[in-house]
């Protein structure tokens, strides 16, 4: 009888012990899952920043004048218009390798883009990249893949828009919508 009680006691202790181990393990898995999700989010944020930097320092769109080949934090509006045409035409395949299924646009802040202060740039008004933004590149991810491309990270970078005909600068910012 005494031995049975002892055995029961031992079994109860073991059950409680394993129960605690299961709780600890599930707690650990949950923490790992959430930290993994945070890490993935941060990695994608970094990718969005990398893509924004790639566009920001592209000689295809950067301002240049005379012997100064590159002017920092500045996009030439004529180059932007030309580059947009290339992205939709001959350079479509090449630049897809760089930009992927993402959206890149430039939003003018000052002066109000509605005033058409810069004559060499055409703003989109279809609302895909917000009102009065210059949509540079957009490729939609395939619709038949329900697992990937569910989230978006956005990276922004202030930039001056230069109109080489009117010789005027406007204040704007580059937006990269990174889909993953």
């Amino acid at each position: 009888m005494k031995a049975q009680i002892r055995m029961g006691e031992s079994i109860a202790v073991m059950v409680v012990f394993f129960f605690l181990i299961v709780i600890a393990y599930s707690f650990y898995v949950k923490i790992q899952q959430s930290s993994l999700a945070v890490d993935i989010g941060k990695a994608q944020e970094l990718r969005a920043i990398q893509l924004a930097q790639l566009v920001y320092y592209m000689p295809e769109v950067q301002c240049s004048s005379g012997t100064q080949l590159v002017k920092e934090s500045c996009f030439d509006t004529l180059k932007l218009e030309k580059f947009k045409g290339i992205l939709a035409g001959d350079g479509r395949l090449f630049y897809f390798g760089l930009f992927g299924y993402n959206t890149i646009y430039i939003k003018q802040v000052y002066p109000n883009p509605g005033l058409q202060w810069l004559a060499t740039i055409d703003y989109d008004s279809d609302g895909t990249s917000g009102a009065d933004a210059f949509l540079l590149y957009k490729r939609e991810p395939p619709q038949d893949d329900p697992i990937r491309f569910k989230s978006t990270k956005v990276a922004q970078m202030p930039v001056a828009l230069y109109d080489p005909i009117q010789k005027k600068y406007a204040y704007a910012y580059l937006v990269v919508e990174y889909v993953y």
């Binding site: 500045c74 202030p158 001056a160 704007a172």
Partner: peptide, 9 residues
């Protein structure tokens, strides 16, 4: 970039 772009505007 904010400083650079702002000063040129």
């Amino acid at each position: 970039n904010t400083l650079n772009a702002m000063l040129q505007t």
